[in-house]
């Protein structure tokens, strides 16, 4: 996944074609490309062959055919996508205003914010889940007589576990922070905000009409990283007993080996497709209409 992200990170408008690049550089570029391609494609190809090559019947696409009708497939995939969308919305709604406020009025707090946002990378997910589940268990005991009891139950609703959104938001923070920070760093936020204020724009207008349109690539890359993270997030969901797509894949793999590999390939393709969509959204603005 990490290898894919640079495509959506803030687009540096690199010259598309530099004539007269030294020959040696071109050769090395080719070598690196081939090695990298082998590294990525060989396992993919092997997996693909494994799914379509039945020892008895030869070539067959049955494994792929089985995915869609499989029990729980649609439900878990939709749950994962729903969680991803909710996480993206929440994490962006939290971080963007906070980062703008820090940049504009309290630049000295930036290191603090950076450290706070990076913390989730340092805390192992297993510790994180242990904490969450302790709180969730502790909650009902102490809150039984208060209205919060309902809340604690509601966020654990298996059809849409809000607690997973909360956990994913925390896990996505470091990536979102990085993506937005480099996006904001690429523009002169203060001057643009002041220019817009000077033209009579209210704060919401500034954010939606000036900051966001100029931060598209940063937002796209933040969204993509979050999406990839939520689709692949296993530890927290599994230990809290929910069944989004990643958990479902592991569950079915015990029953049908060929199909579970097929599902993995399918989810990879799905992720690539979403990436492609997000990165086109992110880069279209540069070329201009």
């Amino acid at each position: 996944m990490a290898a894919l992200t640079p495509t959506v990170l803030p687009d540096v408008s690199a010259p598309a074609h530099v004539p007269g690049r030294p020959r040696r550089v071109r050769v090395w570029r080719g070598v690196v490309l081939v090695v990298a391609a082998l590294y990525f494609l060989a396992p993919l190809l092997a997996s693909f062959i494994f799914t379509v090559n039945d020892p008895t019947q030869g070539f067959t696409l049955d494994a792929y055919g089985e995915i869609f009708p499989a029990d729980g497939f649609a439900q878990s995939l939709l749950l994962s996508l729903g969680l991803a969308v909710a996480t993206i919305v929440v994490v962006l709604a939290l971080t963007l205003p906070a980062m703008l406020a820090v940049r504009l009025s309290a630049p000295r707090l930036r290191p603090v914010m950076e450290v706070v946002c990076t913390l989730p990378l340092v805390v192992p997910p297993i510790t994180f889940v242990a904490g969450i589940s302790t709180v969730l268990r502790w909650g009902p005991d102490y809150l039984a007589t208060t209205p919060f009891y309902q809340t604690v139950m509601a966020i654990q609703n298996p059809s849409f576990p809000v607690v997973l959104v909360i956990a994913d938001v925390v896990l996505a923070l470091p990536f979102v922070y990085r993506a937005l920070d480099s996006g904001l760093g690429a523009m002169d936020v203060r001057t643009l905000v002041e220019a817009a204020r000077n033209c009579g724009a209210s704060w919401p207008h500034v954010v939606f009409r000036v900051i966001i349109p100029n931060l598209k690539s940063g937002l796209a890359s933040a969204s993509f990283l979050t999406l990839a993270l939520v689709l692949g997030e296993y530890t927290v969901a599994r230990l809290l007993g929910f069944q989004p797509f990643s958990v479902w894949i592991v569950t079915v793999s015990g029953a049908n080996a060929a199909m579970s590999v097929a599902v993995s390939i399918f989810s990879l393709l799905l992720t690539w497709l979403l990436l492609l969509i997000l990165s086109t959204v992110g880069t279209r603005q540069r070329s201009g209409p």
């Binding site: 001057t191 220019a195 033209c199 000036v210």
Partner: peptide
């Protein structure tokens, strides 16, 4: 009076045009 309600147009030292608009 907040900045967006003042009757003063400003030109900044650095380039301040909105990059996403023509």
């Amino acid at each position: 009076v907040p900045a967006n309600r003042r009757d003063a147009g400003m030109v900044f030292q650095s380039y301040s045009l909105f990059p996403n608009l023509n």
